[in-house]
Design a protein around this nucleic acid. Structure first.
Length: 425
RNA sequence: GGAGAGAUGGCUGAGUGGUCGAAAGCGCUCCCCUGCUAAGGGAGUAUACGUUAAUAGCGUAUCGAGGGUUCGAAUCCCUCUCUCUCCGCCA
């Protein structure tokens, strides 16, 4: 959520910032509502104040043993007026809340202009795509020939956009997860965390997936439904919900390996081949909870932590700074890591690292006590994939493939692969 | 799933319809006293929102959550959530 005070005081500036995203904010409608809110709130609170004073007088009179009948009569008329004012106020507040929850975060000043992914700016590149002495194949073809990646079986069980993996390939994904968790916990100072995969709507509202992106989520049909997490960002970041941290508890670095579930509504026709875009995939997530002053530096660090994984795996990648038009709803600035996929002959997103500023913290009331003033202040939250295991698996398959269709096991994964040095072949 | 008990401020814990945002103690902050330490005395010590130039005043809300009764609810009624104990079941 954008700071309501800022929204109120600097409506035009906020609208201009949101316009960089291509978001059309109806400032006039908002301001009209806000004016109504102000009038109604003042009226309501004044009436309540009068009512409270009257009730207090009655109590005092009664304590003195006086006749309270005349006072009672005088107070009767308050009820209806107050009910009416309160109902009106509630309606306006709800409308305002809908608007506020639907507004994306402000983008940072150093976010490049642009309207789509084509305008994203490459920040740096690591390593170079290897030259293959043969025509590199994509992971679908490799996996099928190995007999270890089976979309047909998945389709019989669950439908499209699911995968079944077997043997060395399934193990390779597990190795990737283990490797990533170990690096982040032992070298980057993250606390390994186990979290629920089913969450309440409030958690998703806290991180910003709701109310706007319900269609992208899987949801149970209970009266109070559970939602399947689309990313561990949701439970990890919500660990800060409704809490006031002591200054010395921050910064907090959390990591978790979870499956992620996405209905991918609106993605039909995109990446239908293979394992790039699935309803269910594995991911190691990184989350930082930091005091406001530290979030810019934290984004650089978090991004470098994700980069470390790709470097150790010796996978060529590039870092792009997302342009204003491509940046996610809750983020104020985002770096995407794009890994080289020889089978597709292009870079594809494998991690997205975002600074959400206080946008999520405000929604979930996550605060830290300022040691100097003693007052609670909103924290800043960051998240990033460190990295997506499914896509990392694809990247390893395609970058480590050999002419006979077998796949070499990257050196750093060997501790989890037993005697297996090559899958297939 | 069944039975019972409970949920109050940073913590402990009082409060069963009326100056209760809430006693008392602990903790914390400041001041005084004081060779040091210990002890002692005094004052202060929630959050959010609104109004405002203001983290000054003033107002509103908050005693697990949501509804209700009442002029007035931490206190009465209803629904829900969570925690604890016992039983059952289970990985």
């Amino acid at each position: 959520m954008i700071d309501p005070k800022l929204l109120r005081a600097s409506t035009a500036e906020v609208a201009a910032n949101l316009a960089r995203r291509g978001f059309d904010f109806d400032a006039d409608a908002y301001l009209a509502l806000e004016e109504k809110r102000k009038a109604l709130q003042i009226e309501t609170e004044t009436l309540k104040s009068e009512k409270n004073a009257s009730a207090k007088q009655i109590g005092q009179a009664k304590a003195r043993g006086e006749d309270i009948e005349p006072l009672l009569a005088a107070v009767k008329s308050f009820g209806d007026r107050l009910d009416e004012a309160e109902a009106g106020l509630e309606e306006v507040l709800e409308a305002l809340r809908d608007i506020e929850l639907g507004l994306p975060n402000l983008v940072a000043d150093d976010v490049p202009d642009g309207s789509s992914e084509h305008d994203n700016v490459e920040v740096r590149r690591w390593s170079e795509p290897a030259a293959f002495p043969f025509d590199p194949r994509d992971h679908v073809s490799l996996g099928a020939d190995l007999g270890l990646l089976d979309f047909d079986a998945a389709a019989r069980i669950s439908g499209s956009r699911f995968a079944v993996m077997r043997g060395g390939l399934a193990r390779l994904q597990r190795a990737l997860v283990q490797f990533m968790l170990d690096v982040h916990t032992s070298e980057h100072g993250y606390q390994e965390t186990y979290v629920p995969y089913l969450v309440q709507a409030a958690a998703l509202t806290g991180t910003g997936q709701l109310p706007k992106f319900e269609a992208d989520l899987f949801k149970t049909t209970d009266e109070t439904p559970f939602y399947l997490i689309p990313t561990a960002e949701v439970p990890l970041t919500n660990l800060a919900r409704d809490t006031i941290f002591d200054a010395d508890q921050l910064p907090l670095r959390l990591t978790a390996h979870t499956p992620c579930f996405r209905s991918e509504a609106g993605s039909y026709g995109q990446d239908t081949r293979g394992m790039i875009r699935q309803h269910q995939f594995e991911k190691v997530e990184l989350v930082h909870l930091v005091p406001a002053s530290q979030s810019e530096a934290a984004l650089e660090e978090l991004t470098s932590h994700a980069e470390t994984i790709l470097q150790r795996l010796e996978l060529p990648y590039r870092v792009v700074s997302l342009c204003a038009g491509d940046i996610g709803f809750g983020a104020t600035k985002t770096y995407d890591l794009e890994v080289w996929l020889p089978g597709q002959n292009k870079y594809r997103e494998i991690s997205s690292c975002s600074n959400c500023g206080d946008f999520q913290a405000r929604r979930m009331k996550a605060r830290v006590r300022n040691p100097e003033t003693g007052k609670p202040e909103l924290i800043h939250t960051l998240n990033g994939s460190g990295v997506a295991a499914g896509r990392a698996l694809i990247a390893v398959m395609e970058n480590y493939q050999q002419e006979d269709g077998s796949i070499r096991v990257p050196d750093v994964l060997k501790p989890w692969m037993g005697d297996t040095e090559v899958i297939g072949g």
